[in-house]
């Protein structure tokens, strides 16, 4: 994992994803504050709007990327045994990918 641009790319992903996550948090916060009555109906209605579907998908995508860079950093700092690190990173990728698929299925399930 020492490819050209790898360091700066991950660093950039972490920062950009952080910005998006922050903005999205404000956006969703606005929804909760500006909506008088929050129940399953209004929540379902908000999520089923196409624009929100896209923004939510993007949110989960960036969140997972952000998590990946962060967890990978922690593993690289503390886990020095290459075999263990490889297994750990593979497991984390698997877990994050599974989450991603699951989240896509959920969001797509909203009509």
């Amino acid at each position: 994992m020492n490819g050209r641009g790898d360091g700066i790319r991950n660093w950039l992903i972490q920062r950009i994803s952080a910005i998006y996550i922050a903005l999205f948090t404000i956006y969703i916060g606005y929804f909760f504050l500006s909506t008088e009555l929050i129940n399953y109906q209004t929540w379902y209605g908000w999520v089923s709007q196409t624009i929100n579907k896209i923004l939510i998908s993007l949110f989960f995508f960036t969140l997972l990327m952000h998590a990946w860079v962060g967890i990978r950093d922690v593993v690289m700092d503390y886990v020095h045994n290459i075999t263990i690190r490889f297994i750990l990173l593979t497991a984390i990728i698997g877990l994050l990918a599974a989450m991603a698929i699951w989240l896509i299925l959920i969001v797509q399930g909203v009509r």
């Binding site: 994992m1 020492n2 490819g3 050209r4 641009g5 790898d6 360091g7 700066i8 991950n10 660093w11 990978r72 950093d73 690289m76 700092d77």
Partner: peptide, 14 residues
């Protein structure tokens, strides 16, 4: 800059 690229040399700085 090329030399400092990669996840370790520079980017271990938190």
């Amino acid at each position: 800059l090329d030399e400092l690229d990669g996840p370790y040399k520079l980017f271990r700085c938190h």
